[in-house]
Amino acid sequence: MTRRRRPGDDTGQATVELALALPAVLLALLAVVQAGLVVADHVGTVHVAREAARAVAVDGRPGVAQAAVADAGGEGCSTAVSRPAEVGATLTVTVTCPSRTEVPLVGALVADVAVRGQASMRVER
């Protein structure tokens, strides 16, 4: 014996709607997680640039910025330094680091990005 459906009987409708909407919701959630990881990498890059600028401000020898970047955890980062010779002038350090997009599903859809941090300080020596 089969059960007859009455008009307005929506048995199973919620399950079908969940099955259709859940993949899109999960993909959006993973995209938000990936964006958060890129922002965290940007904050880290700004920190590394600030550390390098401080090192260059007190010690103007070549290679100081790269050493400070390595010490601060900037593996694979490139550094550009603009340091005037006179004491009291403002120097600028720009650090560019790769940010890998490795979150499942979303990482394959979004290419790796390069985050850039810049810091300026007064030359002390």
Results as ranks from 00 to 15, higher is better:
Arg3Lys: 11
Arg4Ser: 13
Arg4His: 12
Arg5Gln: 12
Arg5Lys: 14
Arg6His: 13
Pro7Asp: 12
Pro7Glu: 14
Asp10Arg: 13
Gln13Trp: 06
Gln13Ile: 14
Ala14Asn: 08
Ala14Asp: 07
Thr15Glu: 09
Thr15Leu: 15
Glu17Arg: 01
Leu18Val: 12
Leu18Asp: 09
Leu20Trp: 02
Leu20Gln: 08
Leu20Ala: 15
Ala21Gly: 13
Leu22His: 05
Pro23Phe: 03
Pro23Asn: 04
Val25Tyr: 06
Leu26Gln: 07
Ala28Phe: 14
Ala28Leu: 15
Ala31Thr: 13
Val32Arg: 08
Val32Glu: 07
Val32Met: 15
Val33Lys: 09
Ala35Ile: 10
Ala35Trp: 00
Ala35Asn: 03
Gly36Asp: 08
Leu37Gln: 05
Val39Gly: 13
Ala40Asn: 11
Ala40Pro: 02
His42Cys: 09
His42Phe: 08
His42Arg: 15
Val43Met: 10
Val43Ile: 14
Gly44Asn: 14
Thr45Leu: 04
Thr45Glu: 03
His47Arg: 15
Ala49Gln: 02
Arg50Asn: 15
Ala52Lys: 02
Arg54Ala: 11
Arg54Glu: 06
Arg54Ser: 00
Ala57Cys: 02
Val58Asp: 08
Asp59Thr: 10
Asp59Leu: 10
Gly60Met: 04
Arg61Ala: 14
Pro62Asp: 10
Pro62Arg: 09
Pro62Phe: 05
Gly63Cys: 09
Gly63Trp: 09
Ala68Tyr: 01
Ala68Met: 01
Ala70Glu: 09
Asp71Leu: 14
Ala72Tyr: 08
Ala72Thr: 08
Ala72Gln: 07
Ala72Ile: 07
Gly74Phe: 00
Gly74Asp: 03
Cys77Met: 06
Ser78Glu: 14
Ser78Leu: 07
Ser78Tyr: 03
Ala80Glu: 12
Ala80Gly: 14
Ser82Cys: 04
Pro84Cys: 00
Pro84Leu: 03
Pro84Asp: 10
Glu86His: 10
Val87Ala: 14
Gly88Asn: 09
Thr90Lys: 11
Leu91Glu: 10
Leu91Pro: 00
Thr92Asp: 11
Thr92Gln: 14
Thr92Trp: 00
Val93Met: 03
Thr94Gly: 07
Cys97Pro: 03
Pro98Ser: 09
Ser99Gln: 07
Thr101Trp: 02
Glu102Trp: 11
Val103Tyr: 04
Pro104Val: 03
Pro104Gln: 06
Val106Trp: 01
Gly107Arg: 08
Ala108Glu: 14
Ala108Ile: 06
Ala108Ser: 15
Leu109Cys: 12
Ala111Phe: 01
Asp112Gly: 05
Ala114Thr: 14
Ala114Met: 08
Ala114Pro: 05
Val115Ile: 05
Arg116Trp: 04
Arg116Ile: 10
Arg116Asn: 07
Gly117Trp: 00
Gly117Lys: 01
Gln118Met: 11
Arg122Glu: 13
Val123Glu: 06
Val123Cys: 12
Val123Asn: 10
Val123Pro: 00
Glu124Pro: 00
Glu124Gln: 14
Glu124Ala: 11
